[in-house]
Simulated assay, not measured.
Amino acid sequence: MADETWSAKVSPEVKEELGQMVKDSGLSSKEFLEQLLNQHKIGLLQVSDAQRSEDIQQVSYHLDKIKNQFVGLVEKGIDLKDKFSESLAQESTLHKSIVDQIQTQSKQAQEDRDKAILDKSTLEGLMQEINTRNEELESSNKTHRITIQMQQDKLGNLETRIESVAELEEEVSRLNQEAQAQAKRIESLEQEAENHKRQLVQTQAAKEAQEKDAIKAHEQMIQVHGLEVQRATLEIEKKLLEENKKIRDEYFLKVEALTSKNQELTEKLHQMELEKKESAAPNIKGKTKPGVPSGRE
């Protein structure tokens, strides 16, 4: 292999002292530098064993520390998993309770609605009956009116036929009282029919309003419970995402630190192995004068 030129800037005193040492050694500058380098390697080898033992202990310490940190992370992850599992179980129980409550209330509302429909059907039958009675009353009223008309006609005939004024007055008074009684009875029957009709309309309106209020309250209750379940589910998912992100960030930071430390230790071990190989290489032969160490001892 061809030799290469090497140079370095030093002070004049160092340069003069180095030249004198090369001259005294009787070696060329190249041989002198090689000899000097070998002596330096030998000195490094004398202290490398102690340093290597210390480095190995340091590596073992860091590996144990890494192992403990990793085990701590795993145990923390297991604890968080148990905690989230328990929280999810509680939320699931709450959700089931709310759903059961909604179903019970829905069933009760359905029963109330069926009852209201049945009451409405009963009211419709009652109204039909009242209408039938009204028709009968109207028919009876018409009959009474015909009777009154006949009595009035009879009264007219009696007025022409009866000669006695006293008897005529008595018959007219009786017929008038009869007509008034019939008119009052008709008026009473009409008032009774009107009252029944008004009462039926009010009862039907009240039932319809009660049914609408029950349906509206049921729908609002279902909507409120649905929002509560949705909000509870969103809060659980948010907590889980935050905890998972926190664990993942901590894990990545630990892994990054461990990776950096492992790389540093690997480079250090590689450097130690490289120095060991260089120290085991054969020394370069060179001429030496008596009293000058050769580096082969």
Rank of each mutant, 00 (worst) to 15 (best):
G156R: 15
R174V: 04
K142S: 14
S188H: 03
M127V: 02
S188C: 00
A166S: 12
R133Y: 10
E169I: 09
N157S: 14
K154Q: 11
E159A: 09
M127I: 04
N176W: 02
T132I: 08
R145A: 15
S173P: 01
E136Q: 14
A181N: 04
I162T: 02
I130F: 10
E187I: 01
L123A: 05
E129W: 05
Q177C: 04
I148N: 06
E170H: 12
N157H: 13
N134A: 11
E163H: 02
K120P: 00
L168N: 02
M150E: 13
A166I: 03
I148G: 05
V172R: 15
G125S: 13
T147M: 14
A179R: 12
L123C: 01
E169V: 09
E170W: 05
E167M: 04
D153I: 14
Q180C: 01
R174E: 10
L155A: 06
M127Y: 04
R145V: 07
S140D: 08
R174C: 06
T143A: 14
I130G: 07
L175K: 08
A183L: 06
E187L: 05
S121E: 04
V165E: 10
E169C: 07
E170M: 10
A181H: 03
E167F: 05
T147K: 13
E178Q: 12
Q152V: 06
T143S: 12
